[in-house]
């Protein structure tokens, strides 16, 4: 009916006009008590909000599946149960052998990691400040990044002999390239506005890199550090498996190797479990805390 009216008003059929509606103004209604404006979450809702709880649940389920399957296989030489592994882990842990092994691995790892980080910092600083430095780093990264660190071990053994130095050499190689690559891509993606801001303050050279580029590129740098950490950890365990006798205390890889030779399969699993556990702690505690206090707090990543 309205359409017909507008047709009439216009006089030209086929040109539709929206209907005219009356105007009105009104105050918003007072709020109804029965509707929740803000209501506390239930206990279940709050618990399921905690990431740790959700992840632990997954772990518990996986452990349960393992236990049931191992009981069904019933061959402690091939697949010890979760209970037996946990028991072996606890025994080795309290007797101190596992802890000492893990500690010696971590010690070597940290040395290699820190040297790698320092070299990566120098190379990327050169790369952002000079063109030839950039070319140098780009070439080296594309050459060495695909090369597995462990492949350098025979050469390292030849050069530095059987010992910690060889391990550190291989570790530096594992850390350096992924970290340099990520840091450089972080630096190059810093926005032009932010660069101009820094220079507007009169910052130059090292101050400029420290105060502007590094914080602005921190999300990429942290990713690089995480990847480098994983690469280093893998490389170290593999290297220890190959020639574990680097020093008298051995290391986790060596612990796994020896336990297998002695057919203490539960211990092998306990060793692997320790490797995983340390990885989890570093990823979910150390890096997580680092991120929470920096990039997440600053709203650079979600």
């Amino acid at each position: 009916m309205t359409t017909a009216e507008t047709f009439d008003a216009q006089g030209t059929p086929g040109r539709r006009e929206p209907p005219r509606r009356p105007e009105f103004e009104r105050e918003p209604k007072p709020f109804d008590d029965r509707v929740d404006v803000a209501r506390p979450l239930t206990l279940w809702e709050r618990v399921s909000e905690i990431t740790l709880v959700r992840r632990l649940t997954i772990l518990v389920i996986l452990a349960g599946v393992w236990q049931l399957y191992a009981l069904w296989v019933n061959n402690s030489l091939m697949l010890p149960t979760f209970g037996a592994t946990a028991e072996a882990f606890w025994r080795e842990f309290t007797e101190g052998r596992l802890l000492a092994m893990a500690w010696s691995s971590i010690g070597v790892l940290l040395k290699g990691y820190l040297i790698g980080v320092a070299v990566a910092a120098i190379l990327t600083s050169l790369a952002v400040s000079t063109r030839i430095g950039n070319d140098f780093l780009a070439t080296l990264t594309s050459m060495f990044n695909p090369l597995p660190a462990i492949a350098l071990l025979p050469l390292a053994l030849l050069w530095f002999g059987l010992g910690e130095t060889s391990l550190i050499f291989v570790l530096v190689h594992a850390v350096l390239w992924p970290l340099a690559l990520n840091t450089l891509s972080g630096f190059t993606s810093v926005s032009e506005t932010m660069r101009m801001c820094g220079r507007n303050y009169g910052l130059r050279g090292l101050f400029y890199v420290m105060r502007i580029l590094i914080p602005a590129a921190l999300p990429s740098i942290l990713t690089g550090l995480k990847i480098a950490w994983a690469f280093a950890w893998r490389t170290l365990i593999a290297a220890e498996l190959v020639f574990g006798v680097s020093s008298s205390s051995g290391g986790l890889g060596w612990f796994i190797f020896v336990s297998k030779n002695e057919l203490l399969i539960a211990n092998v699993f306990a060793g692997l479990g320790t490797v995983i556990l340390i990885g989890l702690i570093v990823e979910n505690v150390i890096f997580r805390v680092l991120e929470d206090h920096t990039v997440r707090k600053w709203g650079m990543v979600r």
Binding site: P215, A216, W298
Partner: peptide, 9 residues
């Protein structure tokens, strides 16, 4: 003009 001129950290 850009909003990203403030240092987010």
């Amino acid at each position: 003009q850009e909003f990203d001129q403030l240092l987010p950290w």
